[in-house]
Structures are given as C-alpha cells and as structure tokens.
Design a protein around this nucleic acid. Structure first.
Lengths: 309, 309
DNA sequence: GGAAATCATCGCTTTTCACGATGGAGTCGC
DNA sequence: GCGACTCCATCGTGAAAAGCGATGATTTCC
C-alpha cells in the first residue's frame, strides 16, 4: 500500500495478463507457455513481474502435478485482466477494420456542382466497403469551409491550409433554344445585351461572368436560379440562352433534348475547374485515400470534355 | 494487413497509449513528456513504437509550434485506447481495494457450534472494513466440505487438503436441574443409566459420547435436539441432565439461571476442540488473514474455559 | 532572414526479455 | 520408502528495448 506499490500497479502489461489467463485456463505454467509459444521460464518470469506489479502472488503453486490455482488476489487481477484483454482485442479489431477500409468519412459538396461525380464515387465506395459510414454535407454558405471534413468537392479555391487535386476542366458552353443561333461556334460578343438565364453568383459562376465582362460583353441576366433544370426549362421556354458548364448539359441525368442547341463560344471563357480539397498535412484514412482515387477515376471516365475542340 | 501486422497489433502497450493520450491532450510531444516525467525523445520513440504496432502514423506532425493532430487511424486507436486505460485504472483500483481489505470472504460454520464466536468476528471485521462482503454459509450436512470457502469453523477434523488452527478447548460440563447433584464435581459413572438430553450425533457430539461409552457409562438419551435452548429447557423441566460444552452454557446469549446447576465431570471427557480450517497451501486474502487473527483474539477473550480446574 | 519551437534521430547506458540448463519441491507408483 | 516423474524457480547469457542527452531537420513567427 506504499507509494512504490501504487506506482507499480500501472506497470501491469498486456503480456503479463495474457500469460496469466493462459495459465489459469491450462492449470500449468508449462502448458500455458507452450500455448503462447514461449518457454516455461519466460512465462514464469512474466508472472513474477506481474506479481511484483500487483504486490502479491496471483497463483498458488502446490508443486508437483497439481494444477496451480488463483489466489484471491489473482482472482481480482484476472477478473479485471480479462476485461482488459478483451478491450485490447477490440482495439486490434478496430485497427484492422479501419485498415480494411471500414470507418467513417465526411465528404463536403457545395451547390449542385459535384452532383454528377459524387453519386458514382459514393456508389463505388459503398460497393468496395459495405461497412463504411459515408457522410455527405452540403453547406450552402458562400464561402465553403473544410472544417472537419475529410474531403471537399468544390469548383474554386478554398482558403485555409488546404491541399487540392484538380479532377477535371469543365468548359463552358452556350445553350440556346434550337434555331436561336446557327450551328457551330458562336462568337462571344453575340451575347452582349442578350437575355440570359444563369446560376447565382456562387462558386465559379462569378469568375466566369467576370471573364465574360472583361471581354467587353455584357449579357442581360433575366433570371438566376440554382436549380439546373429550371435554367434549362427557361431556355427552352425562350426566356434567353445560358452559359453552362459541360457537365451541367451533358452530365448523367440530363436528357438529350432537341429543343435545345449547344454551341461552343469563341473565345471560350476559362473552364470551370472541379477540385477535390483536403486539409493540408493530414494523413488520409484508407477510406479517404480510396475515395480520392475513385473520384479521379470517375472524373476520367466522364466523356472527356471537349478541351479545345 | 499482412500477418506480421496482425501480430503486431497486440504489441500495443499501456505506456504507448498513455503517452498517446497525453500528447493528444497537450498537443505536443514535449509537453506530454514533461507531464509524464519522461524526456521528449522517449515519448517520441514510444509513439514510433506504437505506430509500428498499429501499422501507421497516429499523429500528423505539422512541424513548428503548431500542435500535433490525430490522424484518422489515431482517432480509432485513441478512442479504444482510452477505454483500455480506463480498464487498467480500474484494475489498479480493484487491486488497491483488495489490498486495503475490501472484497469478499466466504466463511462456513456448522451447527450452532461456532455461533458464539462468529458474530463477534463478523462485527469486528465489518467495523474494520465497512466495504467488505462477508458471506456465511451453514451447511447442515453430516460431513462438512470446505469447498470454495475461505474459512470454515468446525469442531472436528475435516478430510481433504486442509490446514487448521485450534481456537480453543471447550470442556464438557454436566448441566442438571438445581439440586439433582450435590455441588462440586460429579463422578462420570453417576450418569450410567441416567436420563439425559443431548445434541444430535453430529460434530464432536459423537466423539464425546463414544468417550463416555468407553468409560463403561451408558446414559439413557431421552431426547435429542440441535436447539441449545431446547436442551436447557428440558433439563430445567426435569427431563434429565445434559453434558454440554462450556460455551453452550456460559457463552454469550446464555442467561444465568439458578434453576440449573453446573458440575465438572470426573473423569472429564476430552474437550471439544474448536478449529478454524482452510484449504492447504492457499494464499489468504488480506480479509481472510485478518479474520483469522480476529477469530484468535475473540477466542482468547472468551472467559478462559476452566482447563483442568 | 533570423529566432524560436517542435519532432526525429543517433550514440550510449541501463534495464528488461527470452532462452536453455539446472535445481528444489511435490506426487505417484511399485 | 524410494525412485521416477512432473512441475516451477533460478541462474547465466545474449539480444532487444527503454530511456537519456545531444544534435539535426523542418516549420512558424517576427
């Protein structure tokens, strides 16, 4: 009960308890040693160390072929020790599961930007790791924050300590009601003063409109909505044309529609870049690492956006 | 995920986890080291060992004055690790409590033999160790078994692998209705053919009666009951006399009674010996060790039985 | 760009671990 | 009884690890 003893108690080690449990089950130091793959003398010393740590004998050794038996102190130690060993095994299991790719991943996405990529990523990730816990969050704030997210899809730069990977260039195209413009590329200046439908000024939309404005072209924005289908419907209805990224027009989930015609712009505004972000200097979980790989694959598999064509 | 890794996971040690927890709380290897009383290089190596064991980094070290941060793997390990540390602390507490004398003790007693000693023992033990868990069992079988009992009071020999300690000699005395015999010692042969009340033939009763019989004296047993008060009442009622141990007559709880007279017998049968038994070769719990001491004290404090007087 | 803070690494000493061999203690069978 | 057997403790040895102090590399802040 002195101080030395109290300090000693924390010196119990998992090996000691494992040896003790094996002995209690086998009834013999030697058999326990064989089971654990050690020699008898090693096991004997481990128990001696354990007994030093707890401050008293944990086994009575009758000698001869009689099995050793727990002392009352030994019962206390082993009772708690088994729980400790169970927790240790739980830790090992948790680590293994983690390394197998189970676990949780938090992915952020903003606006409807990444909705053509993220579903495929999620589907493949779930297929590979059925036990994983994928959480998506779509913050609608102007300035996205990476916060505690593992990964963040966004089409612009994030401030803060962030690394990023460009998934793809998504060029802007002009969508107009069929017959509004002749087939083929449309000169950008044709949009000056033209009625247009557009997304709100978030994400890359501002950059694109600023680029257009720098060319001296000032379209007349007659309606803004974040709902992509609404934009296309308005174009169909003749309310105006729209400049939209390739993915928003040809992406999965956008049906072909012969009431619309799509044109390149000359000169073309700089394409929207879709990036995948994560906090700098952070080690990825296997799940996050795989998610990045999958995102790259998915981006590459999308029909290659007409780079300069 | 290979075999080597799997084997490694059980190599996590409590010190590694303690270091990890301290670092996670302090945000720095160096401060954690100071808190734990080690040097920074030692803590650094402990974490390196832990990372080897779990197969990956548990902290991201941004470098410079930025605090280190858990990796996803680190979160998993620390989450489980804290539980492990809590269990280890629980083990230490349990050991300390055990050594302080808390815990459980199983005491066996048989017949009413020890009922004058045991209550005092229990009272003193509870006073010293309020948290202790004292369990008494009174088996009524002919042959007492020590089983899993820590201590067993009995007035005879126990077979099996048992050590014992003689608490006291309890001499037999003759109890008769006042006036049945003249004051002073009574010759044993006066009991030949005399009506007598007696205990059942358990414990030392058989030995005593056999000893009497070997002297050629054959009393007439007119009633047997294990209830001591009933024996005395029958003697008072004139049904006969009785040969009872000193404790059964003068023990606590037996009121003085001038309708009874007590005599020594000449020759006196061998005294009943009250023993305390425990399984041979077993280490006692502190509680059991103290109980033995107390039992000896209590036995000594009983008014000394008239040895030969 | 320099100062400060932080963790990793190296060389070194001390302690611990694990082994094989030996010895002492107890049990069982003849 | 008396040897054969089984069991655990201990000793000596070599390898591994813990712990320390000093040094170095990297990053942040001023």
């Amino acid at each position: 009960m002195n101080v030395a003893t109290l300090e000693r108690v924390i010196d119990v080690e998992l090996r000691h308890l494992a040896a003790m449990a094996a002995i209690a089950e086998e009834g013999s130091f030697g058999r326990a040693a064989a089971r654990l793959g050690y020699t008898q003398s090693t096991v004997s010393q481990r128990i001696a160390a354990l007994e030093r740590a707890v401050g008293g004998p944990v086994f009575d050794r009758p000698g001869g072929p009689k099995p050793v038996r727990l002392t009352p102190l030994g019962s206390v130690v082993l009772g708690q020790g088994r729980e400790l060993l169970a927790k240790a095994e739980a830790l090992a299991d948790a680590v293994d599961r983690f390394k197998a790719g189970d676990g949780r991943i938090d992915i952020g996405t903003f606006q409807s930007v990444s909705n053509v990529i993220l579903p495929s990523v999620v589907r493949r990730l779930r297929d590979e790791h059925p036990g994983c816990d994928i959480r998506l969050s779509e913050e609608e704030s102007e300035q996205p924050r990476i916060g505690d997210l593992d990964l963040l899809f966004y089409d612009g730069r994030i401030d803060g300590d962030v690394e990023h990977l460009k998934l793809l260039d998504d060029p802007y195209l002009l969508v107009a009601g069929a017959g509004t413009f002749p087939d083929g590329p449309v000169p950008l200046e044709r949009l000056d003063g033209a009625p247009m439908v557009a997304w709100p000024l978030t994400c890359d939309q501002s950059s694109m409109e600023q680029a257009v404005a720098r060319s001296g072209v000032r379209p007349q924005i007659v309606f803004r909505t974040a709902v992509n289908d609404a934009v296309l419907s308005m174009v169909r209805a003749g309310m105006g044309s729209a400049v939209l990224p390739w993915l928003a027009i040809h992406g999965p989930g956008v049906p072909a529609d012969d009431r619309l015609s799509v044109h390149e712009l000359r000169p073309s505004p700089p394409p929207r870049e879709i990036h995948l972000h994560w906090r700098a200097g952070r080690t990825h979980s296997p799940l996050a690492a795989r998610a990045i790989e999958i995102a790259v694959e998915v981006a590459a598999e999308l029909a290659p956006p007409p780079a300069g064509a």
